[in-house]
């Protein structure tokens, strides 16, 4: 089943065309990595998929439900009520975590399920503790975000996203704000999610990680998908821009 289908997405900021006709399909259980030079439009694509940003043209549907469809050649967003239902399908993990600083770790995770989803408090608490366990943070439930390392904060952010039980989880450079020695613990968590067949779309600069866990890799360049395929196909591609991009990374 197609969990996410985005077709012919176009987006400009003023005169700058950031996305030029991008299409992306995500199937159930698939892990997709998006790589590419900075400024190529990766974040914009995720922000449009998660509706933090509106598109200029194109269509989006989650699990067959149309969030943006075409009427007379124009893209139209679904009604707020339907859109809200559709938004329940995805979560997003930010580059700089965006945890709520005035809430404890536990409250960061449980507040939305309790006050937004109106789920049973006891049950949510129990699940949150299990999530924290999985993240290796069971002793940090009562800490505030400012008392945690970046790697720990990002794992809390992942737990917070998972607590709402999304069908698709997006990551926008989840380790880019972390010191190198802390990226490993976050990548490990994402890897374990991949093993549990969580559907994920991950923008990342961690090439070996992308190569390892992805079913499919997308290389974006200047607002288009330049190369797409299995990790082998993409990393061994003869595409000039891809070679240049990998070359630059190896030099760093």
């Amino acid at each position: 089943m197609l969990y996410l289908e985005m077709n012919n997405i176009k987006k400009s900021f003023g005169d700058l065309q950031v996305l030029k006709d991008i299409s992306l399909q995500v199937r159930e259980g698939e892990v997709i990595s998006i790589i590419g030079p900075s400024g190529s439009g990766k974040s914009t694509l995720l922000r449009i998929a998660t509706m933090l940003e509106t598109l200029d043209y194109g269509t989006i549907s989650y699990l067959g439900e149309e969030a943006v469809s075409l009427y007379d050649g124009e893209s139209v967003y679904a009604k707020p009520k339907k859109l809200k239902e559709i938004k329940k399908n995805f979560g997003l993990v930010f580059q700089n975590f965006n945890l709520f600083p005035h809430y404890t770790v536990l409250k960061n995770i449980t507040d939305a399920p309790i006050s937004v989803q109106k789920r049973n408090k006891k049950e949510v608490m129990k699940e949150a503790k299990e999530l924290l366990d999985k993240m290796g943070l069971s002793d940090k439930a009562d800490y505030y975000p400012c008392q945690l390392s970046g790697g720990q904060q990002q794992r809390v952010a992942i737990a917070r996203a998972l607590a709402l039980k999304p069908k698709v989880l997006f990551f926008d450079e989840p380790t880019s704000a972390l010191d190198p020695e802390l990226t490993g613990e976050v990548l490990k968590v994402i890897k374990s999610l991949a093993e549990q067949k969580m559907t994920m779309v991950i923008v990342t600069h961690e090439m070996s990680f992308a190569r390892n866990i992805s079913d499919r890799v997308i290389f974006m360049d200047k607002g288009v998908i330049a190369v797409e395929g299995s990790p082998e196909e993409v990393f061994n591609s003869s595409n000039e821009r891809m070679q240049e991009f990998l070359g630059k990374l190896n030099h760093e």
């Binding site: 709520f100 006050s115 937004v116 917070r160 996203a161």
Partner: peptide
Amino acid sequence: GQHEASQILLYSKPQEFFKI
């Protein structure tokens, strides 16, 4: 980012204002 996180977590506008 606080506003964006609230949006993604589907807080309503009043909830976001009073809680976050």
